[in-house]
Design a protein around this nucleic acid. Structure first.
Lengths: 130, 130
DNA sequence: GGCATGCTTTACAGGATGGTTAATTAGCCT
DNA sequence: AGGCTAATTAACCATCCTGTAAAGCATGCC
């Protein structure tokens, strides 16, 4: 639920929000500046809401300057996300993927004839979901 | 909405789902094996649903073997997510963070006296949300 | 066939999300 | 004060998400 990692990932799970972050990489911007590219698709309050999501996730900080709220990128929360991902680096290689696919077509899935146990029974301990 | 990246991130935005993926790093596992650690908190159909989310995101593939559905990790979709994140690597360093914080306290935010334009007006083009 | 096991589907409830319009607050300027 | 611009809040709606209980498939074994 409100664990940091989940909030981060779920904030990233929307193209509008990702676009906002991308825009912020170029530097500070006011809410209406951020909203401008979307105003065809979406109204200002809509954007405000997305910003609030990003804010709650700690990815954006809103300052105040007269009537403007200059928003800045804060990528710190992405660090945890990236670290989480790193654990999967080894598994990401397309080569491994294709290999797996290949092995599956070549070696018949089971053929150990009669068996009453689950397919493979790996060690089991799992930790690490944080 | 159903763009790949969003699906991936949103699949990752849940601790149960991340735990399942973590478990699958250890190797193939049947649905009930995967479910076992959660059965205190959640029923089997609940886990099935989470698995379906992971499946639709392409992160898990379910085979069939008699009455079992051996699930395997497929980290390929994480590659795009990791690439997306890479664009932010530069911004993730805590040092930068602290630096920004520091600058904000030292240099008074504005002081360019009277101004009627938005705070900073960066170049503006933004692409890349994919 | 009949039963046990593994898993999925259906139907439903509660809450979060994403978006809208309309009204409201905040701050500048004359 | 009055008016303009920037942005948020409120109220509302539709949709999706997470979880449950109960019924339904699928498969192997006796």
């Amino acid at each position: 639920m409100p664990d940091t990692l989940s909030q981060t990932f779920s904030a990233l799970a929307d193209p509008t929000r990702r676009a906002i972050l991308a825009r912020l990489r170029l530097g500070e911007a006011s809410v209406s500046q951020l909203a401008e590219p979307f105003l065809g698709r979406m109204t200002l309050p809509g954007v405000t809401k997305h910003l609030k999501v990003l804010e709650r996730a700690g990815l954006v900080t809103k300052g105040r300057e007269a009537q403007w709220r200059p928003c800045t990128l804060n990528a710190a929360p992405l660090k945890d996300a990236a670290e989480w991902m790193d654990e999967y680096r080894v598994f990401m290689e397309a080569s491994l993927d294709r290999l797996g696919e290949y092995l599956k077509t070549v070696a018949p899935p089971v053929s150990e004839s009669t068996r009453t146990d689950p397919p493979t029974t790996p060690p089991a301990p799992y930790n690490d979901h944080r």
